[in-house]
Amino acid sequence: MAPTDLPSRYAVIGNPVMHSKSPQIHAAFAGQTDQNMVYERLAAPVDAFPHTVDEFFSTGGAGLNVTVPFKMEAFELTRGRQTPRAMAAGAVNTLWVRHGEFHGCNTDGVGLLRDLGRLGVALDRARVLLVGAGGAARGVVLPLLSAGAQRLHVVNRTEDRAHELVQAFAEHPAAARLSAGGTASGIMLHSQWDVVINATASSLGDTAPDLPPGLYAPDSLAYDMMYASQPTAFMRQATTDGAARTADGLGMLVEQAAESFFLWRGVRPQTAPVLSSLRAMLQTGA
């Protein structure tokens, strides 16, 4: 095989990361679109993200997806060389190198909106509760507001972090529809919620955020950005508390991955068959 025929290398970087289904997703996208590429998992020590990224790209890597807990570090690594989506989010989940420098984008917001659209969720004038204030939450604040959410209330176990996140968007024209509080107080002040989104990583440990009962409006959706073969702890909690519907983040994962794939390869894959196949794999334990 000639050097020019070697596949381009991509990976998802995180800690933990071995649970990630991103390799299967991108392999399916590559097969669909006839792209010569490989995609792997890359575990980075929590104190060595920049070094791990440097090493990956210096040995021929072409692109990285970034997952917990490194999206904020990826933002700092690409400061001044980010797409408008990444700058608006203050977090990066997609990396590549151009002219010897790291560049970044955030595809979480577009991934979430596309999956909510698939689920038939109307965000226009919806009351949305966003649980969590990390990189995953930052990436979806402006997309949710831009989609017409009447109220977006961010809560976090450490309330100061929720207020810091909201303050980061204080100059945005839609800031009046954005508010913050703690998970233990203030949630009920805004009545019931049409959409409750868990942007924490709690479900990775099969635990649910500490939320009070009575959050859910009629016909409400509880959406967990995490995913599993069975309903997550957050989804089970939401069902008990009265959510009309629940969904996990597998569709969001596939949609944000498709946007990253497009940024890297210039080709937009079909997501529906990949999501269907991935769901079947999860349910059979594959």
Rank of each mutant, 00 (worst) to 15 (best):
G134T: 08
L116H: 06
V128P: 00
A74D: 12
G111T: 00
G111R: 03
A126W: 01
F70P: 07
L130W: 11
E73I: 00
V66K: 13
F70W: 10
G109E: 09
R125W: 02
E73K: 05
F57V: 09
G61H: 06
P84G: 02
A88K: 14
A62I: 00
N106H: 10
V92R: 15
R125S: 10
L95M: 11
T78I: 10
V68T: 09
L130N: 10
G104E: 03
A126T: 05
R85E: 14
D115W: 09
V128C: 03
G132D: 07
L116Y: 01
E55R: 15
G109Y: 14
L77Y: 05
F75T: 01
T107I: 06
M87S: 07
T67Y: 07
A133F: 07
H103F: 12
T78G: 08
W96I: 00
G61Y: 12
R79F: 00
G63L: 08
N106E: 10
A136P: 12
T83M: 11
K71N: 05
Q82D: 01
F57C: 07
V121M: 08
M87A: 12
H99D: 15
H99A: 15
D124V: 00
N106T: 02
D108C: 13
R98D: 06
F102Y: 15
E55Y: 14
F70R: 10
V131K: 10
G60T: 11
